[in-house]
Computed example of a mutant assay.
Amino acid sequence: MTPSKALAKSWFVTGVSSGLGRAIAEAALARGDTVVGTLRKPDQFAAFEALAPGRAHAIALDVTESAVVPGAVDKAVALTGGLDVIVNNAGYGLVGAVEELTEAEAGRQMDTNFFGVFRVVKAAIPHLKSRGGGSIINIGSVASARGFPSMGMYSASKFAVAGLSQALSKELAPFNIRVTVVEPGGFRTNFGSGSMGWAANPLPDYARTTAYMRESMERPKAPAQNDPARGALVILALADMDTPPVHMALGADGRKYVKDAIRARLADYDQHVELAESTAYPD
C-alpha cells in the first residue's frame, strides 16, 4: 500500500494516559500534528497538554457515558477546526471464566471495549463526511482472532470491534473514510497490570487457569518484544495511506498468532464438509 503525502492532521485519540494511546499521541505531536486526547482524570490534563502547547488538547471523557460522547467529539472539532483521524484506543481486559462472571461485569466489558467504540464512531462519522473523508483506526486485539480462556468477554468485545470495523469499511468507503482494526501482539505497556479487571467471584474450578493468566499478565517471564513508540509509527503510517488494510496485526508475534488462529479456524471449517453442506433442498 502506497502512503499518501503526509500533511498535518488533527487526531482524536481515546485513552491517552499511557500505553499505546499515549505513544500514538506523542508520535503524532512529534511530527507537527494536532491531537485531542481523552483522559478520565483531570489531574492528567496539564502533563498531556505540555507535550505540545497549542497542539495537544486534553478533554475529559469516559466512553461508557453515552450522553457525553457526542459533545466530546464536537468539542474536539471546535478545538482543531476539523478531525482527520479517529483512534479508538480506550479499553481494558477482564479476566475470568465465563461461568465466573456476573452479567454486570460482562456488560461493563462490552460497554467500554465495544459500545465505547460504537459511540465515538457514530459521533465522528458526520464530521468526517463533512470534511470529505478521513481515517478511523480501532485498536482491537489478537484475541479477536481466537478467544483466550479466562478472557472470554474481552475476546468477545474485540471480536465485535473487528466485525464492526469490517462493516464500517464497506459502509464508509463511498465517503472516502478509511477503516482499519489493529490487532496488537505483546507491547511493553502497563496493560497487563494497570488496565485489567478480575472476576469478583472466582470459582475453584478455574483457579489454575486464572492464576496462570494473572501471572502472565502481571509478571511475564520475558518482556514483551514490541515497542509502543514503534507501534505508534505504524498507526501514523496507516493514517497516511490512501488504501490501508482493514486488518493489521502489530508485531511479528501478533501476526503469527493471528495467522495461526485463522489456519486453525479454516481447518475446523474443512471438517465434516459433507454434513455441513447437507442442508440444501433436494433437487
Rank of each mutant, 00 (worst) to 15 (best):
S155H: 10
A261G: 02
E274D: 15
G231D: 04
G93M: 11
L94E: 02
V63S: 07
G185Y: 06
N88H: 09
N89P: 07
M110N: 07
I24C: 10
V179I: 10
V234I: 15
T102W: 03
H272D: 13
E105H: 08
Y154G: 03
V117A: 12
P223T: 11
G19Q: 12
V161L: 11
A162P: 00
D62G: 05
G37E: 09
T64W: 04
D242L: 09
G37N: 12
I86P: 03
Y281A: 15
I136P: 02
A264N: 07
D283H: 08
L236C: 02
V69N: 03
P174I: 12
F114N: 06
F48Y: 15
V258D: 05
P42E: 15
A28V: 05
V179A: 00
T112S: 13
Y257R: 05
D240Y: 04
L164W: 07
T210I: 13
S150F: 13
K221L: 14
P245T: 09
T38M: 08
R22N: 14
M151Y: 10
A200G: 10
R255Q: 13
R55S: 08
F48P: 01
G71T: 05
A25H: 01
L168M: 01
G140L: 05
N226Q: 13
Y281I: 11
S165P: 01
K75R: 15
P184G: 04
G54Q: 02
K221A: 14
S169A: 15
R188F: 02
T34C: 10
D242V: 07
A156S: 15
A23G: 10
T14M: 02
F148K: 03
I139E: 00
T34G: 04
K122H: 14
R22Q: 14
V73C: 01
A123Q: 01
V87H: 09
F187V: 09
L7P: 03
A239T: 07
A229Y: 01
V182R: 03
E100N: 11
T34D: 05
I177K: 05
G37I: 13
